[in-house]
Design a protein around this nucleic acid. Structure first.
Lengths: 249, 249
DNA sequence: CGCCATATTGATCGGGGTCAACGGCTGTGG
DNA sequence: CCACAGCCGTTGACCCCGATCAATATGGCG
């Protein structure tokens, strides 16, 4: 049952090791799953939902709508991510979360999570860390949007997604992964127009950095892609440096 | 002694009410103060500092350096803000924090803060909330950089700063406040060039939305400024809606 | 007073937005 | 089975916001 609830654990343990009991409690916290179709909202800005959600499968995005029908995607979320932790403590969402693909989420009742946090401070800390990583990614996006131009920006996004997907085992044979985003969605994330996303992606293909085949992207030259995007994975807090992981008894 | 340590308390209580004892503990956690001059780094990206800092006076910014000497400021910090909470849990800074003005910070030893968090879960929660608000502001900046053009972007920044400064009592007679930022710094925050910041600010002045007098900015027409910047203060979590404040016993 | 950082203004250039047309793909209904 | 409609990606033409370069105030500060 719930074969994928492990993804959350795996994610949390990138930074903080958990005891078996803590893992068990978390897995049991998922009282049910919920399936969503593409382009559905899981939560909307301003809402005050009573359940929390872990992504078990699929891709979602945080986004904000601004006047004139413009949209800005502020981050992507993949399996193992917690969608709405901010709602847990702030009581109200400052942004919406919507699906980009078919999605399965695990539902964790607000109260359950609160109780877990009280009894298991290390779990609370791991969750806190998740939100800090989220913030770190957001800051990197600010830099990406503010100071890099389209070509570098897209390269950077591809690097980020490929590292994050790799961390959850969704990169096959080293260099290719599912890319379920339309160019319009990429545009809304990178602050560009769809037209320019198309041209710029093409550029990346012409340069031989990536190729796309259907819903899949294959990175042909990781080093040059990373360089093009001025990318370093530090801000994702995934890698071999493990934060204060050593504190586990 | 430390007349300004209250600013932290006031800030935290925007979202969570604290018991007197908790406030006292926090105030005593500040073992000393430290003065910095303008353009000094408090912490640098990658560092793993052992103290935490509360701003008692002055303005700082989070920033990242990218190749080619470019800089992106990812957020401003004012009195009452905690500079480096991310370092507390992540063990490593993903960005630098530097001063923009003369600054006084309160120093809180890492271990002290950890102990406080263990003994006073509500304080831990309040701190967590601070980091969540930080993340919320970052997301709003992403939208600002990605989907608004210079004029709206600057208007939005002015709105944000004036609301935040008002919340800590640094807006005099309703509409004017210190603006210690150079146009170069504004440019690095808004993803623009200094030249264009100059022109756009001028535009705001010509339109009669603000006037600048020395280091001070006065908002002449709040409604139009807010409209120009497509600004709503919800994401700052300061206002009359107080999150889950009710939970205080 | 001269020096340096900052602000302003003008001129020019280019990245990327916008508008529009077109082709490919998928789904749906006659 | 085909016709048609949408959605998505691609390509071209044109234009504008904002970057860049450069020169000129302005204003502390030694």
């Amino acid at each position: 049952m719930r074969p994928n609830a492990q993804t959350l654990i795996r994610k949390l343990e990138h930074v903080t090791l958990l005891a078996d009991e803590e893992k068990q409690v978390l897995i049991e916290a998922v009282v049910r799953t919920r399936d969503l179709r593409p382009n559905e909202d899981l939560i909307r800005e301003g809402e005050q939902p009573t359940d929390r959600h872990v992504i078990l499968e699929g891709v979602l995005c945080r986004y904000k709508l601004l006047h004139e029908g413009k949209r800005q995607i502020t981050g992507f979320q993949i399996a193992g991510d917690l969608c709405d932790l901010c709602g847990l403590l702030m009581g109200r969402m400052d942004h919406s979360v919507g699906t980009l693909t078919p999605v399965t989420v695990g539902v964790i009742p607000h109260q359950t999570l609160r109780r877990i946090m009280e009894c298991h401070p290390r779990v609370a800390e791991a969750l806190w860390q998740e939100t800090l990583i989220d913030a770190s990614i957001a800051r990197e996006w600010i830099a990406n949007l503010g100071r890099r131009k389209a070509y570098q920006r897209l390269a950077h996004l591809l690097c980020e997604m490929s590292v994050r997907l790799k961390a959850i085992g969704q990169v096959t044979d080293g260099m290719s992964f599912e890319w379920p985003l339309t160019q319009g969605e990429v545009a809304d994330a990178m602050g560009l127009s769809t037209v320019h996303v198309s041209r710029t992606l093409q550029q990346l293909r012409v340069e031989g950095l990536v190729i796309t085949q259907g819903d899949e992207i294959r990175v042909l030259d990781w080093d040059r892609l990373q360089e093009a995007g001025d990318f370093t994975p530090d801000y994702l807090f995934l890698g071999s440096d493990l934060g204060n992981r050593g504190r586990y008894p």
